[in-house]
Design a protein around this nucleic acid. Structure first.
Length: 419
DNA sequence: TCTGGGGTCCTAGGACCC
DNA sequence: TCTGGGGTCCTAGGACCC
């Protein structure tokens, strides 16, 4: 019973969503962008998609995930800006600090949105609307950024209402009014309903959340499985199952780490492709070491010119966090699965099935691995100090890496011959 | 339209074990 | 003799989110 999964007490959840976050951060660095059509994510002629668009640009139909070239056609006068992830992370931390001063129960759901469990904070902050308006003001004063706040009795209601409050607004859905609030909205507004689910529902004549709520739970389950059942609960405003059901600010460990690269121009040049895999393996290995994870499974992702995409995984007998080991397996997967001569658009390296320690390695192996780990940790530190380009096991693109790749196929550090 | 990069979760089939 | 089934691990692919 979905209803039985609801907590016995009434919760007050805030969902705080920053308005056009990337664009707003760029405006802090360059105020002349204010009020203009701005597209963040790359230049107008580049391969890539829109990360964020200003409200002015949205008037011309530009939205995130749209190809940059399409955006340029729809809104020729837009200003195109490269993204600056460090800036966004920095601002996100400021946002987190402001939220944390209202309650310790803060969970960043992504770089620009958070859930707050404000249950029982009335004596400190007053009723929800007052708390939300204070928060809203403080956010502007301390970060220079606008946000919208949705308030509800579940994460779902809070999330959907912050969406309805945009831009720069606050919306509180009173307990008991959940179904009434959702009913006139498009099914697409429900988190988890994407393009595919939407068209399935449309095919059944279901356009609004209200149509969904009228349907038998059993029918939804029969048609869409576990998902359909959750959907029935969502139509009533319940956090039906999965992540939505978890407590706000519960700890979640990362489940996977990955890096991928799309070429500006497709290529079938093996040394170039393998050098990219080396670089991606290094990036993944580095992140594993930073979080002290060892991965049991490594996965190659390969996208051809025609966009057909395959993934090939390999599970290791001993978990690893070493660049060279990751690369060794990734390269083997690549050589086994790449159709030689066919142009490649994207490569990716993915690590998962984490353990906190590398399990059971014999002493000799262990000693060798420890020396590797020391060498790599030293390299990580150098990179922190002098930048990404200062240390390369076999990194870089084109020309310069080619010789290195040939003479040092395993990308081994230090002097002497590989092998 | 010509389609990024980083994630999470789900499904489904096959292997293997009991 | 004929016919089981559950559980877990692994892999591949896909929907979805920001």
């Amino acid at each position: 019973m979905a209803a039985a999964q609801q907590p016995a007490f009434l919760r007050t959840i805030f969902h705080v969503d920053m308005d056009a976050f990337f664009v707003s951060v760029e405006e802090l660095y360059d105020p002349s962008l204010k009020g203009k059509a701005v597209v963040v994510g790359g230049q107008r002629d580049e391969r890539g998609v829109v990360s964020a668009a200003s409200y002015e640009a949205r008037k011309f139909g530009v939205h995130s995930a749209m190809p940059l070239r399409t955006a340029a056609k729809q809104c020729p006068h837009a200003i195109f800006v490269d993204g600056h992830p460090e800036r966004y992370r920095e601002c996100s931390e400021k946002v987190y600090k402001v939220l944390g001063s209202f309650t310790p129960q803060v969970e960043m759901a992504s770089i620009d949105e958070a859930y707050l469990d404000m249950t029982g904070t009335e004596r400190l902050h007053g009723p929800p609307l007052r708390a939300a308006h204070n928060l809203h003001q403080r956010m502007k004063a301390e970060t220079g950024l606008n946000c919208s706040v949705g308030i509800g009795s579940s994460r779902l209601i809070a999330k959907v209402s912050s969406g309805q409050a945009k831009p720069n607004g606050v919306l509180w859905i009173l307990p008991g009014e959940e179904a009434k609030f959702l009913s006139p909205l498009d099914v697409r507004e429900i988190p988890g309903v994407g393009k595919v689910m939407e068209s399935h529902l449309h095919a059944l004549g279901i356009k609004k959340v209200g149509d969904l709520a009228k349907l038998e739970e059993g029918e939804l389950e029969e048609r869409f499985g576990k998902w359909g059942l959750a959907l029935a609960g969502k139509a009533r405003g319940e956090d039906a199952g999965g992540w939505f059901d978890s407590e706000v600010a519960a700890e979640h460990d990362a489940k996977s780490i990955s890096h991928e690269h799309t070429y500006n121009e497709d290529t079938a040049d093996q040394p170039q492709l393998e050098s990219t895999l080396m670089r991606l393996s290094e990036m993944v290995g580095r992140r594993l070491r930073e979080s002290n994870f060892h991965a049991r499974t490594v996965q190659l992702k390969l996208r051809y010119k025609d966009f057909t995409t395959i993934t090939r995984a390999h599970t290791l007998p001993n978990p690893t966090q070493l660049d060279t080991e990751i690369f060794e397996h990734i390269r083997a997967l690549f050589r086994k699965n790449w159709k030689k001569g066919i142009q490649v658009r994207l490569l990716g390296v993915h690590a998962s099935s984490f353990t906190t320690q590398s399990s059971q390695i014999d002493l000799l192996e262990g000693g060798r691995q420890q020396r590797w780990k020391d060498a790599l940790t030293a390299a990580d530190k150098l990179r922190d100090k002098f930048g990404e380009s200062s240390v390369g096991l076999a990194s870089g693109l084109r020309g310069s890496f080619r010789e290195r790749t040939h003479e040092n196929p395993a990308g081994l550090p230090g002097k002497g011959k590989a092998k």
